[in-house]
Amino acid sequence: MTSDEIKDLILEIIEDIDDEADFASLDADQPLRDQLDLDSMDFLDIVMELRKRHKLQIPEEDYPQLASLNSCATYLEPLLKDA
């Protein structure tokens, strides 16, 4: 997956969590949590969904790497390079 595909994947997962999420003014460098009103349960959903869809095991200590859209892409790119 390319970096852009990964960002689309994350947004798609977030949309499943909250179908009213508004991505129009999303800043890819800023924390998703504040911009989209995500809580820790939502982040757990993202991790579970990545495991379900791509068999990705993300250790708990790496959760902070999923903070912004860009940091997600940077962290996940090597893990999803063959996906």
């Binding site: 349960m41 757990l44 579970m48 495991r51």
Partner: peptide, 13 residues
């Protein structure tokens, strides 16, 4: 939900 995540990690590792 939190515990299901732990169990899923366990079963898939």
């Amino acid at each position: 939900v939190i515990v299901a995540n732990d169990v899923d990690v366990f079963l898939k590792s």
